[in-house]
């Protein structure tokens, strides 16, 4: 690990001021950042410790939604009785990720910013445009079984590894930030992540030194919720394919549907065409097939991850059968 200087921030306002070099980074749970620092994939020259800031509360808002502090640990968020009762898809997604130890340490804000688990991103001897822009992509043509089939570019086929963020996307979360100049921003999760294009090193809309302070969930959605995750082991493994579903059936017709996907793309994936194929229709396998076709219309396999395309189709259909009772 490269050495660094360390500062403990007393307030969010002080934290954003402490990020005064391009090599400085915030650290909270640190479960991903320290892992990458040990491998020298990340080499910050300064760490600003934000772990003790007063951002670890979950609060109800007047509009019926929840405001979640960025430092709420994953385990506390999953166990919160309001989340369990009204946003079960989020609890389920959190509990499907990582281990008990990691969930106790990892934070809500940090989870959103997890880096890809692409083998070549971790291997500093390999080419990786995300780690070292312009160096190439060893994953294309390499071992890419766990990597993306949607939203890729010729420069990067990494997946976003989070389960939590997939549920957050299905729930239309908003990310609240504090910028170095003291301004606050509210960014829809739908606008937060970036496709790789020819700049795979840019993963989200955050500016340099911008701090996530809260995540807002709108009032609980109508309908049944499910998080279904397919992985190589029964526990403690990243998703090959996952589906976060919130679907409301009224009088035998799908009144609303919100579907987000993990393991398929460089960001928690959502495509309005999938939902358009469902809403207003009576639930049936033919309708679910049409939704899967809409999801996977532009899917592109890279050899060893080709299996994800039929797997995503089947996982989506199975999830839709379950949440609609069809």
């Amino acid at each position: 690990m490269k050495t660094f200087t360390y500062e403990k921030a007393a307030t969010p306002e002080a934290a954003v001021k402490d990020i005064d070099t391009s090599g400085a980074k915030f650290i909270a749970g640190g479960t991903n950042l320290l892992d990458l620092m040990k491998l020298q994939v990340e080499t910050p020259d300064k760490l600003v410790d934000i772990s003790r800031l007063d951002l670890a509360k979950i609060e109800e808002r007047e509009d019926g939604g929840l405001t979640i502090g960025a430092l709420v640990p994953n385990s506390d968020l999953a166990a919160d009785r309001r989340v369990v009762a009204k946003y079960e898809v989020l609890s389920r997604a959190l509990l499907a990720g990582a281990s008990g130890q990691l969930r106790n340490k990892a934070t809500t804000g940090g989870n959103l910013l997890q880096r890809t688990r692409c083998y070549y991103f971790y291997d500093t001897a390999a080419a990786c445009n995300k780690r070292e822009p312009g160096s190439g992509c060893s994953a294309i043509g390499g071992f890419n079984r766990i990597l993306a089939v949607l939203g890729t570019s010729e420069h990067c086929i990494a997946t976003h590894p989070s389960d939590m963020a997939v549920a957050m996307r299905a729930l239309d979360a908003t990310i609240v930030t504090l910028k170095a100049d003291g301004d606050r921003r509210r960014i829809s999760i739908h606008d937060f992540y970036r496709l790789p294009g020819d700049t795979p090193q840019i993963e989200n809309a955050l500016e340099a030194g911008e701090l996530i302070t809260h995540i807002e969930l709108p009032a609980p959605p109508k309908g049944k919720q499910e998080y279904r995750k397919v992985r190589d082991r029964a526990s403690y493994a990243f998703a090959l394919v996952s589906v976060a579903a919130v679907v409301d059936v009224q009088n035998g017709v799908i009144a609303s549907a919100s579907l987000a996907f993990g393991g398929l793309g460089p960001m928690p994936w959502r495509n309005p065409a999938v939902e358009a194929a469902l809403v207003g229709k009576a639930p049936s396998d033919a309708v679910f097939e049409a939704a899967a076709t809409a999801l996977l219309a532009d899917a592109k396999g890279y050899g060893s991850n080709d299996f994800k395309i039929p797997l995503a189709r089947r996982t989506l259909i199975a999830t839709l059968r379950n949440v609609t009772g069809a």
Binding site: Y6, G30, L34, Q101, N104, K105
Partner: peptide
């Protein structure tokens, strides 16, 4: 419970 290897 936490992983002591992953925290400073």
């Amino acid at each position: 419970r936490v992983n002591s290897c992953l925290t400073l």
